[in-house]
Simulated assay, not measured.
Amino acid sequence: MKERDSYRERVGEHRIPRGIVAEATARTMFTLTRHPPAPELAEFVDYHWVLRWDLRGRPAHEQRVLPNLAVHVTFFPGASGVYGPARDVFSHRLEGRVQGLGVRFRPGCFRAFLGAPVSDIAGRAVPLTAVFGPAATAAAESVRTAAVDAQMVGAIDNLLIAKQAELTPAARQAAEAVESIARDPGITRVAQLCADTGLTTRSVQRLFAEHVGCPPKWAIRIYRLNDAAQRIAAEADPDYAGLAVRLGYSDQSHFIRDFRAVTGQSPAEYARSARAHTERVPDNDRT
């Protein structure tokens, strides 16, 4: 129980970019439930996420998710794999009736499972069996046929535990560096992260390439711009100049360039898209 409490405290104390685009519409298309991992995996895994949708007799839905730093291991028909830290907006077509599970690993904590620098899989996916062997096929089938969430979570916990991964001191250092960014929105420069961690710029860069899978500058940008996207989607009349200042940008044009690089849209385009989706959702579905 202590380990589960630790999980809740850790997940609750810092920002975790989730980046579901047009959340109001998304809530009418699928259900998403998050579950803590087994105690043996608490150092490695932020949470399991279980997704279900039933769009039989309805149009297919294209769901977009903003990039984040986590490695996700997914078990879905047609979309199973080990997905490295994303560099672009991820889009997936939802149709028919499907259930599946994904594992969100703590940034910095997947190298022990991969056996190689996480930068090797950045921006791409590799087959489950390439990392977890033939047992991954049976685990995916268990997820597909599970009657309840606990059966899915148990099957995947067992698959991960069987790897007997160990978190190295360097991996812990990488995870702590990312959590420094997550805890403190005031970290907007790599130099500030170096001061917080006590590491040189070159050491931080090597650590992130090996264990996180992206440069530290990109990691900081992901957190800042996920924050921006949430605020833009939630506000009726976003103040882009004020938002740029709050996020530590020296000028609005720099903020707009970075926002477009992460989301594929300008802040104004993103706001219009979010409003358009919200206006199409019935009032009783807005929760």
Rank of each mutant, 00 (worst) to 15 (best):
Y47V: 12
G84T: 05
L55S: 08
A116I: 00
H61T: 13
L101F: 08
T74E: 14
L41G: 11
P77K: 04
V45A: 04
F105Y: 11
V65G: 13
A140T: 09
A60R: 09
V103I: 08
A138P: 00
G78V: 11
G84Q: 05
G108T: 01
Y83H: 13
F76A: 12
V50W: 04
T137L: 14
D46A: 10
H72T: 03
V148W: 10
V73P: 05
A79Y: 07
L66R: 11
V82L: 06
T74M: 13
L66S: 06
F90V: 14
A140M: 10
Q63L: 14
H48K: 15
V143G: 03
A122E: 13
H92D: 06
T74S: 12
E141C: 03
V45C: 03
W53P: 09
A147L: 15
F113H: 11
R58K: 15
A136C: 06
L128Q: 05
Y47G: 08
H48Y: 15
A70N: 15
T137K: 15
A116G: 02
G108P: 01
T137N: 04
G123H: 06
P134N: 03
N68G: 11
L55H: 06
W49K: 14
D46M: 12
G100F: 05
A122F: 10
R111S: 07
H72D: 11
E62H: 14
D46K: 09
I121Q: 11
P77V: 07
A86I: 00
A86M: 11
A139N: 08
D46Y: 10
R64E: 15
G57V: 02
R144I: 09
L128R: 10
A130S: 15
L55E: 05
G100N: 05
A116K: 12
R58P: 00
L128S: 03
F75M: 08
V73W: 07
R52H: 14
F90M: 10
R144V: 02
F75H: 04
G78C: 06
A86C: 04
A139C: 10
A112H: 03
F110M: 03
V126W: 04
E141H: 13
A60E: 10
T145D: 09
A42Q: 12
R58C: 02
G96F: 09
A135K: 13
P107G: 02
V148K: 14
P107T: 01
V89I: 10
D88V: 04
G108F: 01
H61N: 11
V65F: 14
R104K: 15
V126H: 12
A42W: 01
V89Q: 03
G78N: 05
R58W: 07
E95F: 08
G102T: 00
L101W: 03
R87Y: 07
F76D: 03
R124E: 01
S91L: 10
G96C: 04
H61F: 15
D46C: 07
L114Q: 02
F113M: 13
R64P: 01
P59A: 09
L94Q: 10
D54E: 11
A86W: 03
L66N: 08
R106D: 02
E141Q: 14
P127V: 06
N68Y: 01
Y47L: 08
S119P: 03
E43P: 15
